[in-house]
């Protein structure tokens, strides 16, 4: 592996991790604050991507598409919270899993009903098309660098929101003791709706950003959702910092593993067999990572409670 290839893969891992962070941040907030397992988080990601593709196709502006993705996912999130999720806080996790799984099916088939089964087209904005040359002669797509920058900005914004604002204090308080902050006069149900909509908006943004380099199609959210769950388990449930570190770990492991493992097996196998075995092992790596982290720290890297 050359140095240039290695650096490019590290950037790829970072970009993938940042994208996962946008998904995992919402998931971990909802789980931490409300104690709710939301399987439909991937559907909100899909809603964001479809809203962006539809609006960008209609107006020709990617920025308007992004705004639409944020708005549509936040609105869908708030609506779902008001209509369905609100009834689930006092139920056990199995009921929540069942209900939010039903939401996945409703969102998927509803999207198919509106947009059809064929993938939509969402293009990278002209300003970010093509590669830029980084120091050292590395060619790297400008758009992926932009995703890294947007993600890091949002991570910083979230830290500020959680640690420095009144809303953040309430969110942290709700995480620690929800009866007590209700007794102190905070409108807990409004807080829950806001947190849920915030998480949904982040998922929608991730969907729209990724939709431009991948396919915008029904069912695009579920594979990412599984990885996002791995991230929050590694990072510790309820912790934004954990979600960030966990995302980057998973992103880097996944990306570097997919070239390191086949290369490793090529040392003592022929090329095709090494590829097949290496790819299979590489796709297990993040789960191995999760298992190791859980053995070492059962509450996750930054989890508060066991």
């Amino acid at each position: 592996m050359t140095l240039i290839l290695f650096i490019e893969q590290v950037l790829n891992g970072l970009q993938f991790g940042i994208m996962l962070f946008l998904m995992a941040a919402g998931l971990t907030l909802v789980f931490g604050v409300m104690g709710l397992i939301n399987l439909a988080h991937g559907s909100l990601y899909m809603v964001g991507a479809f809203a962006a593709a539809a609006v960008a196709g209609w107006t020709g502006s990617f920025v308007l598409g992004l705004a639409a993705a944020l708005a549509a996912a936040a609105a869908a999130g708030a609506l779902v919270e008001l209509l369905v999720i609100r009834r689930l806080y006092d139920r056990d996790h199995l009921d929540q899993v069942l209900a939010t799984f039903a939401l996945i099916l409703i969102f998927s088939e509803g999207t198919r009903y509106l947009f059809g089964s064929f993938p939509l087209y969402l293009d990278i904005p002209d300003a970010l098309t093509g590669p830029v040359t980084l120091p050292g002669g590395i060619q790297y797509p400008a758009y992926r660098l932009a995703i890294i920058a947007i993600g890091l900005t949002i991570a910083a914004g979230l830290f500020w929101l959680i640690s420095r604002t009144r809303l953040g204090i309430r969110i942290r308080a709700g995480e620690a003791d929800r009866e007590m902050i209700a007794a102190l006069g905070v409108d807990i149900s409004k807080l829950y709706t806001i947190v849920f909509a915030l998480g949904a908006a982040l998922a929608g943004l991730a969907g729209a950003l990724v939709g431009a380099i991948q396919a915008v199609q029904v069912g695009m959210g579920e594979p990412v959702l599984i990885l996002a769950f791995v991230v929050i388990v590694i990072g510790g449930i309820g912790s934004i910092k954990g979600a960030l570190i966990g995302s980057l770990l998973v992103g880097l492991t996944e990306t570097l593993g997919s070239i390191a493992m086949p290369a490793l097996f090529r040392l003592f196998m022929d090329n095709s067999a090494a590829q097949a075995t290496g790819s299979a092992i590489a796709s297990m790596l993040i789960y191995v990572l999760m298992a190791l982290v859980l053995v070492w720290r059962p509450q996750g890297l930054f989890g508060a409670r066991v």
Binding site: L5, Q9, R144, P223
Partner: peptide, 15 residues
């Protein structure tokens, strides 16, 4: 199967 991000593969093609 079902992979969405090919940045890693494209980097390998380039190299």
């Amino acid at each position: 199967l079902g992979q969405k991000d090919y940045a890693s593969e494209i980097a390998q093609i380039r190299a």
